[in-house]
Amino acid sequence: MSHQFDEETKKELAKFLEGQQAEAQVYSTVHNLTQLCWDKCITGAPSSRFSRYEESCLANCVGAFLDTTKHIVNRIEEQRKNNNNESL
């Protein structure tokens, strides 16, 4: 059938789609973080440039959010361990 792709092309397309999906995921996260960090860091009226505070706040905000994620995951992990010990 002429509409079918050969195996090699199928593999190539699958790999391409995987890459595009990963890229979409990164973009989506960056958009999310931009919104979150804008709301946290930008308080005044917008001007022709960011203040030094706003600029460093935006850059630090990303790391702080990811550290928060890690912290919460670790905390859950700790609690899970404690619960396991109690039940033993």
């Binding site: 990164v26 996260t29 960056v30 958009h31 973080l33 931009t34 960090c37 804008w38 860091c41 930008i42 009226a45 917008p46 001007s47 022709s48 960011f50 600029e55 935006l58 850059a59 905000c61 990303v62 790391g63 990811l66």
Partner: peptide, 25 residues
Amino acid sequence: TCLSQCFDRYLEAFTIVRHAYLARI
């Protein structure tokens, strides 16, 4: 005027955040 400046800053914020995120990854 405010909207124009706000949009320019939003784009800049996106760039800063993308940079920070990719560096962290």
